[in-house]
């Protein structure tokens, strides 16, 4: 730091001397002291300036993420209820009671099923789309834009749209199926009213929402592969499938890891789709952890139970994130 404080002055006088001597030397040496001056100013005030610049981010994280997170954990071990003035520490009582609840177990199971199935469908579809969209063709820009749209639309609005599409009376899907003669007009499928169909509907909407995102990520990953490599594979005699599964996809593992990580977290923690579409019904058949936590904690006034349910998301997400990052890292190193 001492050096930094000294150099600007000596540098400046040198620059003055140099500019007096030759006109050509003026520019580069004129720039130099300015730069070191700035550096020393930054160094002198850095603790304060650094803190000031860092503070908004820290405040944001502490107030809006850290504090609610700690509160949730705290509530999970208490008997907090909306409208109650009393608060007692109850240990693992909440966890014990929700683990015994069939609704919770169903919600946990569904959360995992929805996430896994949706991820498989999303990754396969996104792969197909990214291959289709890689090479230029007429109208590729328009197609890319249309595919990206579901991601741009607010989840709640999109889901409300789907609620109409899957409505028991006004479903356009049902109309089309009746018109094609696949289903009877008198016993149309109840998309959101039958257990299996409701599950499929929820997964469908999750896929609809995540495919654009994954497609964009995979497209980026695919474009990053040097074009000589698939070319070399084709000269080596590999066909489409071999090139895809033995060359392109293995080279895309890090980016597939990122797409899966984000997709998993988005699906696993999503409240809007289930809440708007089925609210967990019929008979908890589409219940998920976030929706169950919301129902119990906010709508059912049992804050403690809601917090305990939410707490179950944490270890699952931590494990998923850890695994995915490790896969991505290993693929990078290998």
């Amino acid at each position: 730091m001492g050096v930094n404080q000294v150099t600007p002055q000596s540098g400046q006088s040198q620059a003055e001397n140099a500019s007096a001597l030759s006109a050509t030397a003026e520019k580069p040496s004129g720039l130099k002291p300015k730069r070191s001056k700035l550096k020393s100013a930054g160094a002198a005030t850095s603790p304060l300036l650094g803190t000031a610049m860092f503070a908004p981010a820290v405040t944001y994280i502490v107030l809006l993420i850290g504090f609610p997170f700690v509160m949730a954990l705290f509530y999970a071990f208490s008997d907090a209820r909306i409208g109650s003035n009393e608060l007692h520490f109850v240990g693992f009582e909440n966890f014990r009671s929700i683990l015994q609840s069939p609704s919770f177990r169903k919600a946990l199971e569904n959360s995992i099923i929805f996430t896994v199935v949706a991820q498989i469908v999303v990754l396969v579809s996104a792969n197909i789309l990214s291959i289709a969209l890689e090479k230029p063709f007429r109208g590729r820009g328009a197609v890319r834009f249309l595919i990206l749209l579901p991601w741009v639309a607010p989840v709640s609005l999109g889901t409300i749209g789907w609620k109409w599409i899957l409505d028991s009376i006004y479903s356009v899907i049902t109309w089309v199926l009746i018109w094609l003669g696949f289903v009877s007009k008198f016993s149309p499928p109840m998309w959101l009213g039958e257990e299996k169909l409701a599950m499929a509907s929820v997964i469908l909407v999750h896929c609809w929402r995540l495919i654009p995102f994954s497609t964009v990520i995979l497209l980026a990953g695919r474009t990053a592969i040097p074009k000589e490599i698939p070319e070399a594979a084709s000269i080596d005699g590999a066909g489409f499938w071999r090139t895809l599964f033995q060359i392109n996809l293995p080279m895309m593992i890090p980016i597939l890891g990122v797409a899966t990580l984000f997709g998993t977290i988005f699906t696993f923690t999503d409240l809007a789709v289930v809440n708007i579409l089925t609210n967990g019904g019929p008979y908890d058949s589409t219940q998920t952890l976030p929706n169950y936590a919301f129902n119990q904690g906010i709508q059912g006034s049992d804050l403690a139970a809601g917090a305990a349910i939410s707490a179950f998301l944490v270890p699952v997400l931590v494990v998923i994130a850890y695994l995915m990052l490790r896969v991505a890292h290993r693929a990078e190193v290998a």
């Binding site: 000589e228 070319e231 070399a232 594979a233 593992i253 290998a334």
Partner: peptide, 11 residues
């Protein structure tokens, strides 16, 4: 064919 970049399969 041998490419300028060799195009070895990195994985």
């Amino acid at each position: 064919m041998v490419f300028q970049s060799y195009a070895l399969y990195p994985h």
